[in-house]
């Protein structure tokens, strides 16, 4: 029997809850959005998850700069990778939603553009990593870029869309969630969904970290075996 820690069971339970209750429960009838309002349980929590996971990545980058431990670097990278995955998922779910409510996949909404830029930043982060050879230098420099990028990401995601007209709720004079569509029944699913997607992200990160550690271990062992062979010869 597979043994998992308690929070992994919690993740599974919450994800099933989100899926089942999210798709079966009653939702408010609103014009235009109609049934697609259920996407709120998937699209929005994915964004929350992305931002939280990217925040974790930045925290590990700071930790790396303070401690110089390789493990912290691995955490920072893998969290950034999962952040990219969540960003793509959030973008795709958002595009499908936009197609059915706003009429086009790419609406040029400030938040849509901002999230595309956010993805570009983290893709640039991986390009930077792959173009640095020395491992310690790579870890250090990419940690610096990670923190720098996150600092510029915040105005991008939170300040800019508020200043321009946007069709997202809560922006450009539109009322926020609280005032109309997020009634108490939806909250019952929405908040668990946020926790579920974030925990799933963290689960993915920990899996990827274990994979990386195993790969590093194998590589050092292979090196050791090789050098031993050379000595014996």
């Amino acid at each position: 029997m597979l043994k998992l820690s308690w929070w992994k069971y919690l993740t599974m339970a919450l994800l099933f809850y989100t899926l089942i209750v999210g798709l079966l429960s009653d939702v408010p009838r609103l014009d235009i959005v109609n049934e697609s309002i259920r996407n709120l349980y998937f699209h929005v929590p994915m964004w929350f998850g992305m931002i939280i996971i990217l925040l974790v990545s930045m925290v590990y980058a700071i930790k790396y700069l303070r401690s110089n431990q390789e493990l912290h670097d691995i955490y920072a990278v893998e969290a950034a990778n999962v952040g990219i995955l969540f960003g793509i998922l959030g973008l795709v779910t958002g595009m499908v939603w936009a197609q059915f409510t706003w009429g086009t996949f790419w609406h040029g909404d400030p938040k849509q553009n901002a999230s595309a830029i956010a993805l570009l930043i983290y893709l640039a982060y991986s390009v930077l990593r792959s173009s640095l050879e020395d491992e310690q230098q790579r870890a250090k420099i990419s940690a610096v870029y990670n923190i720098f990028a996150f600092a510029t990401l915040i105005p991008l995601l939170f300040i800019l869309p508020r200043l321009t007209a946007s069709m997202h709720p809560g922006n450009g004079g539109n009322p926020g969630f609280n005032s109309y569509d997020l009634d108490s029944r939806m909250r019952m699913v929405f908040y668990p969904a946020v926790i579920a997607w974030t925990l799933l992200g963290w689960w993915l990160v920990s899996l990827r970290v274990r994979f990386s550690k195993a790969k590093n271990q194998l590589r050092t062992e292979a090196h050791a075996a090789q050098s031993e062979q050379l000595i014996n010869d």
Partner: peptide, 27 residues
Amino acid sequence: TMVSGIAAKAQNSTTLMAVLSFPIILP
């Protein structure tokens, strides 16, 4: 300035300079 400091440490730094700086300068 900061980005060029980062890019200078890597290879093919001229391409990297554009890739790293455009998204963060966009806002």
